[in-house]
Amino acid sequence: METTDLKNFLSLIEGSSSPFLHRKKFESGNDFNISELVHVQVHADHPGKMFCKDTFNGDSEVLDLNRISRRSVIFPEEIPLIRVGPKPISDKKYEDLQKLMQWVPKMYDNFYQNLPQTGNNVIDG
């Protein structure tokens, strides 16, 4: 994946002009808990709706994320990127990676030697 593949989907639910809302209940009134789902489906003919199951049997529940508004909601033509370039790593992590270079094939040397660094020694996760 490239950094241009990573999009900031929060822009679709944040702000009063966003096209979607972060909902916590299905249309049936049951609580929506993403960690319990075993099946999620979206359909092109039902934009803004997710069809979810928390078991492998039975019918799907519908989560409607569409904003109900008197104003017309405009869906953005492009979803913004999370970041423009690669995420920098700490100096300490960079030093640790350089120590491991003896076990990395030589063809990857350029990549690991040119990693961007934050300039601090806190190891980031």
Rank of each mutant, 00 (worst) to 15 (best):
G58A: 03
L65H: 01
E61R: 05
D31H: 05
S35T: 08
L12P: 00
N120P: 02
D96I: 12
N120S: 09
Q98T: 03
H46Q: 15
F20A: 04
E27M: 13
S11P: 00
I13A: 07
V73I: 12
D64W: 04
I79K: 09
Y112K: 06
T118N: 08
Q98N: 05
N57Q: 07
K53I: 00
P47V: 08
R23M: 13
R70I: 12
D5V: 01
S72Q: 10
C52D: 00
H43L: 14
F32L: 10
V122F: 10
V40N: 08
S16C: 06
V122K: 11
G29D: 05
G15I: 08
V122L: 14
Q41R: 15
S35N: 07
M107C: 11
K106D: 13
D45Y: 04
G125M: 15
N57W: 01
R23K: 13
S16E: 15
M107L: 13
Y94F: 12
G15K: 06
R67D: 00
P116G: 13
S35K: 11
T118V: 05
M101S: 06
S18W: 03
I74G: 03
K53R: 06
Q113F: 12
T4I: 11
E14F: 03
N110S: 15
P88S: 02
L100F: 06
L12A: 10
S17G: 12
F20G: 01
S35R: 06
K49C: 08
V40R: 06
I34H: 11
S60T: 04
Y112I: 05
S69P: 01
M1Y: 07
E14A: 13
N121R: 09
R67Q: 06
L81Q: 10
F56I: 05
Y94V: 01
V42Y: 11
F9V: 14
K49S: 07
E95L: 10
G125P: 05
Q117I: 11
K93N: 05
H46E: 14
F9S: 09
T4Q: 12
E27N: 09
F111C: 08
L10F: 09
N114F: 07
V62Q: 10
L12V: 11
G85E: 14
S11T: 12
L21W: 04
L97F: 02
Y94K: 02
D96G: 07
K87L: 11
G15M: 06
N30F: 09
V84M: 14
G58I: 00
E36T: 11
K87C: 12
I89H: 01
I123N: 12
G85K: 11
E14R: 08
M50E: 03
I123G: 02
S17H: 14
N120D: 14
K106A: 14
N30S: 13
N121V: 03
Y108F: 15
K99W: 02
N110W: 14
T118H: 03
N66H: 01
R23D: 03
E61A: 02
E2Y: 15
W103R: 08
K24R: 13
L6C: 13
D31A: 05
S28K: 04
G48R: 00
N8L: 10
S16F: 06
L6S: 13
S11F: 05
V40L: 11
E14P: 00
S72T: 08
N57F: 04
L97V: 00
L63H: 00
P88F: 00
N57M: 08
G48T: 01
E77K: 07
T4Y: 08
F56Y: 06
S69N: 09
M1N: 12
D64R: 09
M107R: 13
S69G: 08
